[in-house]
């Protein structure tokens, strides 16, 4: 009887059945002129396949640094001290630069808050998008151009065919962001990371852009990692949400249950700040975000938490499965 060697293709498929992106216990240290800070202390979350995951965090939460880490684009002076980032089962942190480059821009693409940062000002918009298509699919010039026009139209740019010839400076802010998103989709990425993509755009435009983005992502069976400080944006678009505070994750899981019935006091307080309908005094969280000059001794939110107990300041709560989600809180 002959034994059957394991099928190499099937083996890789098995590895790919898991989550698309797994970030596990990521920590980072930054060296600045004033000294050392620890902007990331324990970031853990996953992005499943075909999912839209929102990362909610305020200033100092570490959300932008996390996306930089995923792409291997940390700024000077910042280094990861521990943790892993698995993309399709492979640890991005141990990959050589060459393989990382193959993933960056092809399987993972990113869009920033400022569309001018994503678009080359001296090349026409259509050409930039077509270039991405050509590089990643080997399509011909004509085909790539058609694809570019289609993508622009798909992101809501009127007169896409004519507009494709224009340069980024001829686009308004909202249009430029639509173009940047179109370009990020051109390579048919598995994961699109959008860091505050609609912040700074007029409210009436934000809704439209987000809706189109979600539609295009679902069409492609891709996943979207959406970073935002705006819970309204997250509520309207995301399947899952990750709540970050001071370099750690305090709650993560399905968006609906978390936003309507948060277990973490921070999430609850944050949602309450957004849900404003009356006139008169507004809800706020007293104090300000901690300066991260050392590792957390206890729960980072303890000093501002309404229901804090002594145990909260004494030990760091672990991120555990509770109530259909993961939450880091001693009292829940």
């Amino acid at each position: 009887m002959t034994s059957v060697a394991p099928d190499p293709v099937r083996a890789t498929d098995d590895a790919r059945d898991g989550d698309l992106l797994v970030v596990d216990r990521l920590a980072a240290r930054a060296r600045t002129r004033q000294g050392e800070t620890f902007p990331l202390q324990d970031i853990t979350f996953t992005v499943p396949r075909n999912a839209i995951v929102g990362v909610v965090g305020e200033s100092g939460s570490g959300k932008s640094l996390t996306t930089a880490a995923i792409l291997g684009l940390l700024p000077a002076g910042v280094a990861l001290t521990s943790g892993t980032i698995l993309f399709e089962g492979r640890d991005l942190l141990t990959l050589p630069e060459r393989q990382l480059r193959a993933i960056r821009g092809a399987k993972i693409s990113i869009v920033f808050q400022n569309p001018r940062a994503s678009l080359n000002p001296v090349i026409s918009v259509g050409k930039q998008i077509a270039e991405v298509t050509r590089v990643h699919t080997g399509a011909g010039k004509r085909e790539a151009w058609e694809h570019a026009v289609e993508l622009l139209d798909g992101m809501g740019i009127r007169n896409a065919r004519r507009r494709a010839d224009d340069y980024p400076h001829q686009y308004s802010g909202g249009m430029a962001q639509r173009a940047a998103l179109a370009r990020a989709l051109a390579c048919s990425p598995r994961l699109l990371i959008a860091d505050e993509p609609t912040t700074g755009l007029d409210a009436t435009v934000q809704e439209d852009v987000l809706e189109l983005l979600v539609t295009r992502i679902r069409e492609r069976d891709a996943s979207l990692l959406l970073i935002s400080h705006d819970i309204g944006v997250i509520a309207a678009t995301c399947d899952e949400v990750v709540v970050m505070y001071a370099g750690t994750v305090l709650e993560s899981g399905p968006a609906g249950p978390i936003l309507e019935g948060a277990l973490s006091p921070y999430t609850a307080a944050l949602v309450a700040c957004f849900d404003v309908t009356e006139s008169g005094r507004m809800r706020a969280i007293p104090g300000s975000t901690p300066v991260l000059t050392h590792a957390h001794a206890g729960c980072p939110f303890a000093s501002r938490c309404e229901v804090a107990e002594p145990v909260c300041a004494d030990s760091v709560p672990a991120l555990e499965e509770k109530g259909g989600r993961r939450v880091a809180c001693h009292l829940r």
């Binding site: 305020e58 307080a269 944050l270 700040c273 809800r283 706020a284 969280i285 300000s288 975000t289």
Partner: peptide, 29 residues
Amino acid sequence: LDVSIRGQIVNLLLDEREARQLTIVLISH
């Protein structure tokens, strides 16, 4: 400012209006 802090500013302005009989023109989106 972060959304969680905007209430601090709003409440402060409302308090000042009471205390000083201040007139405020608020520009905001």
